[in-house]
């Protein structure tokens, strides 16, 4: 009971990871090299401010023009992993920057 409650409280915007092949990234690179991709995921309710509350209320009561609805706080990387270098199937080196999250935050 206590354990799961503690876990539940920690499940905000967190860093998760997945094991991938470089070709899974969808960037057009053909390579069988593997990598760990880290991404940010989770709700950002905890970091809501009065600003977010007001925005939500205004949008709900249609007091904002529909096109102008600003985004709510998003779980996004606030720092990125080190560069990823790999050799593709044509034996050409590539380096991808800012490809994987290191730390997450609600921004």
């Amino acid at each position: 009971g206590r354990m799961s409650r503690a876990n539940g409280r920690g499940q905000g915007c967190v860093l998760k990871q997945i094991h991938l092949n470089v070709s899974d990234l969808g960037l057009g690179y053909r390579s069988s090299e593997e990598m760990i991709f880290r991404y940010c995921s989770g709700p950002c309710r905890k970091s809501e401010t009065n600003y977010d509350k007001i925005l939500y209320n205004l949008a709900h009561s249609r007091k904002l023009p529909p096109k102008d609805t600003p985004q709510q706080a998003c779980c996004r990387p606030i720092a990125f992993d080190d560069d990823l270098s790999f050799l593709d199937d044509s034996l050409i080196y590539h380096t991808v920057r800012k490809h994987s999250a290191r730390r997450c935050g609600c921004v």
Binding site: G28, A59, H60, L64, K67, T69
Partner: peptide
């Protein structure tokens, strides 16, 4: 540089409009 079929995954203006209209 983007491949067409991976676009529109993130929420763009169009999707915001849909959300706003739904709300």
């Amino acid at each position: 540089c983007e491949k067409e079929d991976v676009e529109e995954v993130l929420c763009n203006d169009m999707c915001k409009t849909i959300i706003a209209t739904a709300l």
